[in-house]
Design a binder for these strands. Structure first.
Lengths: 193, 193, 193, 193
DNA sequence: GATGAATGAGAATTCATTCAT
DNA sequence: AATGAATGAATTCTCATTCAT
């Protein structure tokens, strides 16, 4: 399996760095290959084409979020606790990898519609887990049981996304992790009955 | 002043249509010119370059939001009322112009970092007015007086933005205006002390 | 109409020279453009893609053969006379344009199947006229009235083609025009009843 | 001698199949290797490079024609008889191996000038035997003693070649062997004094 | 002011060949 | 002898911008 070979992850990581440092449209295959320390042609032994690299980057990295979130959900705690941990986790991962934050919040959004659709379908898995937490909280009475789940999810994700994108656009000038509790409180306030 | 001449707005409107119908990367100057009914070269009598068109599109169209919001603010009402009206206005304008919604929520975000930074600085004017409402509400005791304004603003804007983007991505399948009151309630809940 | 503009023919002629001098696979667009004295991009104002150039080359040049042949046929003479003139004409045109001979006999045959199929359908028009002459000659009793027209046509065309290809492959070492009468006599001998 | 090892012929046969089924330009080394059941690198233990394979294919397969023709010539019969047998043999071999017919008549002709020149020099041996028959026939008075041997040879070979190529291009739709006698009669008619 | 023909820089991908195992 | 992962050179086409008319 290609995905298990060391060069696969090596190229994925090189792509994140190359895109973060050069920008989406300036991250040519040759730059990614150079960053990965392989020949241009070697890229094509592991990826079908450039689009495949970009989607794989998102998939591999998003996988971390999903796995963390699954673990958080499986631990029997209150929905409030789960949502808090989800928010903290989201902030932590990106606060600790500015290259990745730049790529997911700014650069990858410059991709064409086809790639963005595929990225979105990967994102859906994450949002489905978020929905689970919200619905559970509504049933348990922790969150407003009459709210529209879709809109609640859009508020939670939209707020997180906007917060992190602003942090990236402001060139990481402030401490992102410190804002997490504030975001958490405000969102929980909005969700409560 | 070239911005007053009829062809200026003609080209702006043509750009919105061309981008909405063809997508950002497929909206070549020749397509915009054709849509506007002018020659390619004529575009350059009114705009410095393609980037200038895109930024001008955002600027001209964003102006509508800013003007409406200024009027809303100047009417002496409660901050809650002002925020509600701001949200309703934002939803209404885009619900009534799907081309514009597609362009602002999806297509223009595919532009490169440089253009996006300029777009963001135009957006700042709008966000500053939003901040005014929030601060006023905090002082008047309508909103939680201890909250971080920046985060509150990011929640309000992020939620609106995510909601509308989802609507566009779901190809306008549901009635956007109907969701406005739900979004409003949830946000006001999050802001209240 | 593009085909009437001077640059259209200019590029066609440049392509013949570039292909003859560099070989099919070494006749890059940039070489053709340089030979034509235009920019690479200009090529694409007149031709859809490289394949379009190659097919157009054949079409334009083959047109000369077809037109000459139509004129020959329309002149009321014996079929023997018509066939003789057709053979002479074929030899004359290529003997007088070695670049063209190289391109049609050697280089263009390196093209892929798709292009070759299109070239062949252009060639069909020429072969149909040849068939007309043969059938007329059979009816008039000048040629063997029991022969298979397809095979007769293949003998005539195959012999001409092989003769000229050999001349090109032997680097034009002998006088092609001098061989025309001998080819003519031998073919007429084969066709007679 | 590497040509005696079983893998040598195995690769040659694999090349014929790979080229016939995929086309000249799509018959990559990897496809030939797969068809032959060996690794890509193994090819290079038996052939210097790809060009060497293609030339060897022609050489090995052409050898069959040459041997048959030598046998035909050595049997003391009339030149007419020899030529007839030569034509029949040529048609028979290709009619019975459509892969080979496709490769020699269509695909191998897409090779570059260099390879085609080498292929031609291999073909010369065959054409020399054809010349022998023709000259003998001229001396014996069976063929027109004043004709130009080169042109006679080009007529014979050109006609055969064109006939078979048409058959391949028409996707073997008609029975090639049945056309052999007609071709033979027409050619003999052309050659006779 | 308006036109539109001409320009030319820039990048993904393939595949014959090598060589360490 | 046999393997197959890795190499890296090489080329078409697009499209923002210009400028002579």
């Amino acid at each position: 399996m290609k995905r298990d070979k060391p060069k696969y992850k090596q190229i994925i990581d090189a792509a994140v760095i190359a895109i973060a440092e050069n920008g989406y449209h300036q991250a040519q295959i040759s730059k990614i290959a150079k960053q990965a320390g392989v020949a241009d042609g070697t890229i094509y032994l592991y990826f079908k084409n450039k689009e495949d690299i970009l989607i794989s980057v998102f998939q591999e990295k998003m996988g971390v979020f999903v796995e963390s979130l699954q673990e958080i959900i499986s631990n029997g705690e209150s929905s409030t606790e789960k949502l808090s941990k989800m928010i903290d986790n989201h902030f932590n991962v990106l606060a600790n990898d500015r290259h990745l934050a730049t790529v997911t919040q700014l650069e990858l959004r410059q991709s064409n519609k086809e790639i963005r659709l595929k990225i979105n379908s990967i994102l859906k898995e994450y949002l489905k887990l978020l929905d689970e937490i919200l619905i559970e909280g509504m049933l348990k009475g922790e969150f407003n049981s009459t709210m529209d789940v879709r809109i609640a999810r859009q508020m939670v994700f939209g707020t997180i996304d906007e917060t992190i994108t602003s942090w990236v656009m402001n060139e990481f000038r402030y401490n992102l992790i410190e804002t997490a509790p504030k975001v958490r409180n405000m969102l929980l306030n909005g969700l409560k009955g």
